[in-house]
Structure formats: C-alpha cells, structure tokens
Write a protein that binds this DNA or RNA. Structure first.
Lengths: 199, 199
DNA sequence: GCAGTATGTGCGTGTCACGCAAGTTGTGGG
DNA sequence: CCCACAACTTGCGTGACACGCACATACTGC
C-alpha cells in the first residue's frame, strides 16, 4: 500500500469521522447547521478537498457505516467452509458488528435522521454485492443464473438494518448480538433451496 | 375526498410523471441536464410549487415507485386469511407488480442510475412499514416483541428490488412474475419460526 | 536526482432548497 | 347567496452547495 494510498485513506477517514462527530454534536434536528466548511476545517482540509472525497454531507456522515458494510462479504469468507450457511452468516455478521460494539449515538444519528435515510440505506446496501458473491461461492450457486445469492444478501443487509433499529429503540433488554442472531435466523436458510442447488 | 385533496394528488402525480418522463428522455447520463424548471414547466406548475411537493429531483423521479411500494401492505391484506404466508405474499406482490407490467424504461432509469440510488432504495423501502404490519396481523406476531414481521418485510422489499434488477438485466428469458416468484420464495417462510410463534 | 503523475487548493459559476409575503382558489357557516 | 377563513400557488431573495478548471505541491519509479 503506497504512501499515497494510505494518505488518501487517512484523509477520507478524517473527513468521515469529523462529519459524523459534528452531526452527532448538533443532533438530528441541527443537521442543517453543519456546514461543509465546518466539516472540512475539523478534518484539516479545504472545503474543495472534502468535495473531492464526498459529494454530499450525507455521504460523508455515513461513510463509516458504508465501509463497515463492505466488509461483510469478506467476513463471511473467513468462516470455515464446512459450516452451514446460516451459522456462517450469523457468526460473520455478529463478529463484524459487535467487535467493537457500535457507537450508539452514531448509529442513532444515521438511522433515525430522515435527511440521511437515503444515504443510510445506500450504506447498508453496500454489503450486498460482495456478500452475494461470497454466498454464491460458499453454496456453489451461480449468481448469473440463480437469484438466491443476491436475494439472500439483500435479506441479510435488511435484517442487519432492522436489528440495528430495534437495538436503538428497545434499549438494553438484549445484546446487539442476540438481536442480530434473531433477525438473521428469520431469513437465512441452512442450505439453498432445491431450485438453486439443482441448476 | 375533497376537491383540494384530489387536486393535490393530481399535481403530485403530474410532477412525478413529468420528472420521470424527462429523466427517461435524457437518459442516465444526461440526468444533470434535467432542470427543476423543466420539470415544473412540463407539469404545468411553477418551480416553487414543484419544491412544495418534492425537495429534490430524485425524489420526484422516484415518486411513482414509492407510491407503488406503499401499496404492498394493502395488497397482502387483500389476500384470503387462510392462505399460507409465503403464498399470500407472493400472490400479492405479483399482482401488484405485474398489473400493469412495469415500464421497463422507467424502472431502468430508477434502478440503474447511480445518482438515483439513494432515492430508489428509499422508494422500495417505503413498503416495509405497512408490509410489516400486515405480516404481523396475518401471523399473529407482535411487531414490538418479535423481529419476524419487520425482517421479513425488509427481505421482501429487497427481493422485489433484486428481482427488478434481474428482470432488467437478464432481458426476456423469463416473465417478471416468474422472477418475482423465484426471488420471494428464497426468503419468505410458510409460517413464522417457532421463536416468533411462541411468544 | 528527475521526469511524470496523483493529490490538495483557490476561484468562479450555475443550480438548488427554502423562508417569506402576497395573490388565488376552495370550504363551511350565517 | 355571501362572506370570512384556510389551504394552496407563486415570485423573490438568500445562503449553501457541487463541480469544472487551473495551478501549486507531494509522492513515485527510473
């Protein structure tokens, strides 16, 4: 990894971090008060540079969540190959999303602010592509012919999103891991349906 | 329904229709050329009025899809109560999304234009709330206690989205109804899992 | 070291979202 | 039938923003 690449990644994270922090400080209602200039200054770059990395405030604020989602596919691939699909997915997601425990304030900001809804959905949806490929590889199904991998990936992403919302609302009567397990077990089968296996 | 209410609905649809039409005419690449002024003029209202109904071009373009999604819950409720959940969901979705057959150009514009991705996801996600309530009512589960309704609703919305994408890409080797059936059957069980039923 | 390329930055421009206040069109009571 | 009230539409002004362009700067591979 180049110095250039590392610098780029660092600036991107600095901007994203600054954006999320400022958004949290001002709360969902004061989001409009967070100016691009503030984010850029807080991240130590010029407004123009901020705009080279993100094309909207929402995108910057949700960048962390998007990066997290992008890792789901890789997390599934790191599970032992002989593990059943459902257990592998559940274990991979729980490991990725509870180590470390997500920042409640950040998640609340992202998920419960109407102006961020679109970007938040994009962020969670980022998981689908890589995850679908990982599921296809694990189950031996062909993504081009069968919908199972893509549909399951979308269902997993949706389940994570619903679990996050529930975790924020319900409060502390259950760990995030337990909520995730319950949500994922509703939609991920142990093996692909016959129709997918046969082809 | 008041005259006022009807007029309001009519202008909303006029603006949404004009926005989608202009977007299709200019294609995904020329989306930036579609000015707010053009949309408003095409719909027969002032730009300021356009802005009273929608707060972004993307929102106007995706309005039709959003309205469609909002009807999924109602469509499920109109199925006979003794039908198993999976069959009821599949039948409801297929009826809603194939009568009439969706406009390929419109769906392609909404789903395959990167700048519209966030709004498109919002549009499909609109289905989740009402759909989750309908699923909860049908299965006798409690949305506050159990994640099954919300997770299944999210999975259904995701499956519809994936099916749409596949229908656009794959072309004409299968009807949209068949694709929808295949996608939905991956994620909707005939009955809720034990954990949800027991509570 | 040095040429080449990627990245940061300042400036200018066109568009947009939205608050505000006035004009216009529907609504319900006397 | 008419009038007062409310909802909707519209024009204007403002502040912010995304992005193209050109130049300065930092990094890379030879």
């Amino acid at each position: 990894m180049d110095l250039r690449e590392r610098n780029k990644q660092a600036t991107r994270e600095a901007i994203g971090h600054a954006a999320l922090r400022l958004a949290i400080e001002n709360g969902p209602h004061g989001l409009a008060l967070v100016r691009v200039h503030d984010i850029a200054t807080a991240a130590g770059v010029s407004p123009r540079t901020y705009n080279n990395y993100f094309s909207s405030r929402a995108e910057a604020i949700c960048a962390f969540q998007a990066d997290q989602s992008r890792r789901v596919g890789q997390a599934l691939r790191s599970r032992p190959a002989d593990e059943p699909l459902d257990q592998a997915v559940i274990a991979a997601v729980i490991q990725l999303y509870t180590d470390p425990e997500p920042d409640r304030a950040g998640l609340r900001m992202i998920m419960l602010t109407p102006e961020l809804e679109g970007e938040a959905l994009k962020a969670f949806t980022m998981a689908e592509g890589p995850l679908a490929e990982a599921i296809a590889a694990r189950t031996g199904t062909d993504p081009a012919r069968d919908l199972f991998p893509a549909v399951t990936a979308a269902a997993v992403a949706g389940a994570i999103r619903v679990a996050g919302r529930h975790w924020l609302e319900a409060g502390s009567d259950a760990s995030f891991a337990a909520i995730l397990r319950g949500a994922l077990s509703c939609v991920v089968p142990a093996t692909p349906p016959e129709a997918a296996r046969d082809r």
